[in-house]
Design a protein around this nucleic acid. Structure first.
Length: 478
RNA sequence: CGGGAAGUAGCGCAGCUUGGUUAGCGCGCCUGGUUUGGGACCAGGAGGCCGCGGGUUCAAAUCCCGCCUUCCCGACCA
């Protein structure tokens, strides 16, 4: 990680734990020191601080724009769901009951029917889809909601697994399975994968979940698995083909063109605040967070070396210019020493730092420093805006290339379950799904390794887990 | 939810074994001054229900019981 020229600074008390020393500890240090989140008072709950929430808001707007471009509309459904709704779909209730929070009392009285705090909304939304859909002319129905959900987590970790988290859940109903699948694939590729690649610089492996890893109640679950810098996998997003399972129990039906009654085919798909954790662990380094410019609440920080009126004025002018051009930029007017301010912004992962001192000003220049590579550039003060915007684009692109290179470097192709178990200690392993099978999956799971997804040899998403020649991507995971 | 460890100032810790004055230290914070091109320094200062509840005792941060929370390892998950 030491890329700086000149004297290397020594570790200082209060600095981050190095990733190589203790990755989980490094993660907690970053979350705390970059002021992203705190633990809430009740077990597993999370307080998202402004800097962390700022990243989430940008993720939201990038996702929301793409979701709406597919024709889905936002709506809102209730937090509290009658317990009975969950019981209707057998696999769904079985899958979710261990992590349900149930409200049994209200207004000082025991409730006649307990209410569940939603862990996901297939059931309520199904109920209303049934009410709203009458005819094939009402289809497809494409809804999305931004909401909080609660899942009783036994081993919480900020952003990665919390009892309450924020997400987007999309729910659609279609007249045919083909139409549902076509739309689902569009969500997976044009919304999720495009968002991950272009907004988060986060490449992943796309594929299908194995039957045991599937969403409770789905006939297929699609996933995008990202590799964290410790070689473990994180499921970044999921999209589910629910077939007619929910349509059957919630009676989501319609009359076709021939006047016949048919059941709808539904889908659901989600992306959560877990993505913030993924961003931290995919791009962060020993200096702290590294935020891709498109989701960075602060893209550029201008650091005046000293508190000198001319320098401060020049810094303010520069920020005004950048802001005017749509760049999210701030001046650090803090009185801490130069070095301290620099490291504080490094921990926060601000993509680009502009150092401005009396010497620079006299020479009519500034020093630009990239967070991702620590490269320093000297550039004329005039006409910096174009330089900065193109540099931000380059950082965005280079982060993707670097993350993909790390992923490829730590993914090995193997031929047996034993080799896969070995390889998964430091990264991902890929092997024919045919040599894994149910029994192999058991052995992997026994070794704390799981099949993250099944992919075609060319990396595309299979339409069915029984397709021939599929590859299993296996890894330890979060 | 099972196994382990831990909760003392915002953060990191000492004190507890062997109960007994105003509970300490480092970092951070406040005030003033000197500083500032890679985690500054000096002086002065503020800040504590010792996780919560109960018990033992003349006396509890310290001993006992219960609970809550956090971290690590497992089983479950976005």
């Amino acid at each position: 990680m030491a890329r700086l020229t000149g004297q290397r600074r020594r570790p200082v008390a209060g600095a981050l734990t190095p990733q190589s020393e203790d990755f989980p500890r490094w993660y907690q240090d970053v979350v705390a020191k970059a002021e992203m989140a705190d633990n809430g008072p009740a077990r597993g709950t999370m307080v998202i601080r402004p800097y962390g929430y700022g990243i989430w808001e940008l993720m939201q707007s990038e996702l929301d724009r793409r979701i709406k471009a597919t024709g889905a509309e936002n709506a809102y459904f209730p937090l509290l769901i009658p317990l009975g709704y969950f019981a209707r779909e057998a696999e769904h209730v079985e899958g979710f009951s261990p992590e349900l929070a149930v409200v049994t009392h209200g207004g000082g009285e025991e409730l006649a029917e307990a209410l569940v705090v939603r862990p996901t909304s297939e059931t309520v939304i199904g109920e209303f889809m049934a009410k709203w859909i009458q005819s094939h002319r009402d289809l497809p129905l494409k809804l999305n909601q931004w909401a909080n959900v609660v899942r009783w987590e036994l081993r919480p970790r900020l952003f990665l697994r919390s009892a309450e988290f924020l997400w987007q859940e999309g729910h659609t109903a279609h007249a045919s399975h083909d139409d549902a699948l076509e739309y689902l694939m569009r969500i997976h590729l044009e919304v999720y994968n495009d968002f991950l690649i272009n907004a988060m610089s986060a490449p992943g492996y796309l594929g299908l979940k194995t039957p045991r890893e599937r969403f409770a109640g789905a006939i297929n679950s699609l996933t995008i698995e990202g590799m964290m810098r410790d070689g473990k996998a994180l499921q970044m997003v999921t999209s589910h083909d629910l077939g007619q399972n929910f349509a059957r129990v919630f009676e989501i039906g319609f009359q076709n063109e021939d006047g016949q009654s048919e059941l709808c085919h539904t889908t659901s798909w989600g992306a959560s605040t877990r993505l913030v954790g993924g961003l931290i662990m995919m791009h962060g380094d020993d200096q702290g967070l590294v935020v891709p410019p498109r989701v960075a609440p602060i893209q550029v920080v201008v650091i005046p070396v000293r508190e000198e009126p001319e320098v401060l004025a020049a810094a303010e002018r520069l920020v005004a210019e950048l802001t005017g051009a749509g760049v999210r930029a701030v001046v650090d007017r803090g009185r801490a020493s130069f070095g301290r301010r620099v490291t504080d912004w490094e921990i926060k992962g601000v993509p680009l730092r502009i150092e401005l001192g009396a010497r620079d000003l006299a020479a009519g220049q500034v020093t630009l420093v990239r967070r991702d590579t620590s490269d320093k550039l000297t550039r004329p003060l005039g006409g910096l805006v174009g330089e900065v915007t193109s540099l931000l684009e380059r950082v965005q692109a280079d982060l993707l290339v670097a993350a993909a290179a790390r992923r490829d470097e730590r993914t090995v192709d193997v031929e047996s379950v034993e080799e896969a178990l070995e390889a998964a200690q430091s990264g991902f392993a890929r092997l024919p799904w045919a040599v894994v099978g149910e029994a192999g999956e058991d052995r992997l799971n026994a070794g704390a390794v799981s099949v993250r997804c099944l992919s075609r040899p060319d990396g595309t998403v299979p339409s069915d887990v029984n397709e021939p020649d599929l590859l299993a991507v296996v890894a330890r995971s979060y």
